[in-house]
């Protein structure tokens, strides 16, 4: 009998896709994301990672774009195109990992607070409020200063600071779902907490979480760039933020080396825009009320 359920789910996915595909902005964002992801994945196969090594850099520093170096070179004579390309990998990985962490914490806290109510809710929500009022950038800076430097720290710093909004959102949605009589029916049938949450609450909350995820990725990428720009990132890896940090440190502005500043910046803009476009389109598909306003 699960086949019926699966058939229906497939049909729902198809319908959602059709709706999504009918929105040009969302489609553009999705294609952009696909291209960027493919490029990031293919980077080690297509390019030579040794070009990132300062000691093996052959070209002269601060060379403007030319036929050989399409986007010029940096202060060490490395190709900016190569650096930006490889930077995509870190930005995407950190953005996605931090988002997964943040949405996971937010969803668990939000559902638990709404479902159990009482003192559990009170404790969890005060905890959420505490994180909500702290300026997340300052907290992230503090965290990444205290913890050993590395990719994990950046992910943790971003994930731990950006979940409260998700938690509030999920809690509100869970409260709305739990007020519906079918939850009472599930309880009367003998369903426990696990059943009610797993069968009724989660499926109703997940679309919202999903939309929220795509929108959170964008801000996580920005936050990653910010932290790396401030010199708090993993110094051994190239990311867009650390590129901008290096450009700033070594006086790209006074060298008038615009080719060192613009590509990583554009990279951030493109990825963030693509995620936001996708998120908006998905939001419109899952919440038809938003359609009329466009």
């Amino acid at each position: 009998m699960t086949t019926i359920a699966w058939q229906r789910r497939r049909a729902t996915v198809r319908a959602t896709w059709r709706e999504f595909a009918s929105q040009r902005g969302g489609l553009v964002g999705l294609i952009g994301l696909a291209v960027i992801t493919v490029l990031a994945v293919l980077a080690p196969l297509v390019t030579d990672a040794s070009g990132l090594d300062v000691t093996r850099a052959t070209a002269a520093p601060w060379r403007p774009p030319s036929a050989e170096y399409w986007l010029g070179t940096d202060h060490n004579g490395r190709s900016v195109l190569l650096l930006t390309w490889w930077g995509t990998r870190i930005s995407l990985v950190v953005g996605l990992a931090a988002t997964v962490l943040s949405v996971l914490i937010g969803t668990v806290v939000g559902i638990a607070a709404a479902h159990f109510g009482g003192w559990v809710s009170a404790v969890l929500m005060r905890f959420t409020d505490f994180f909500l009022v702290l300026p997340s950038l300052v907290l992230a800076i503090a965290l990444s200063t205290v913890l050993p430097r590395g990719l994990g720290t950046i992910v943790l710093a971003i994930g731990v600071t950006s979940w409260p909004a998700t938690a509030r959102l999920v809690r509100a949605q869970t409260l709305a779902v739990e007020a519906r009589p079918f939850i009472e029916r599930a309880r009367a049938l003998g369903g426990g907490h696990g059943h009610v949450i797993g069968r009724h609450v989660l499926p109703a909350v997940l679309p919202l979480v999903f939309v929220n995820t795509t929108l959170t990725v964008a801000s996580a990428i920005v936050l990653e760039s910010t932290l790396s720009f401030l010199g708090l990132g993993d110094p051994t890896r190239v990311s867009w933020g650390s590129l901008l940090h290096a450009a700033n440190m070594h006086g790209a502005v006074s060298q008038r080396a615009w080719w060192f500043l613009v590509p990583p910046g554009l990279g951030v803009v493109c990825v963030v825009l693509a995620f936001t476009l996708c998120g908006r389109a998905l939001e419109t598909v899952l919440n038809p009320r938003l359609k009329g306003e466009r």
Binding site: R8, P181, F182, E184, R185, A188, L189, G190
Partner: peptide, 22 residues
């Protein structure tokens, strides 16, 4: 619960709109 069961007032809201009859 296997002995005593509940039938609610408004069947429209008592059924999860995402679940089939089965």
């Amino acid at each position: 619960r296997r002995q005593v069961q509940l039938v609610l007032q408004d069947p429209t809201s008592a059924l999860n709109p995402r679940h089939s009859v089965y």
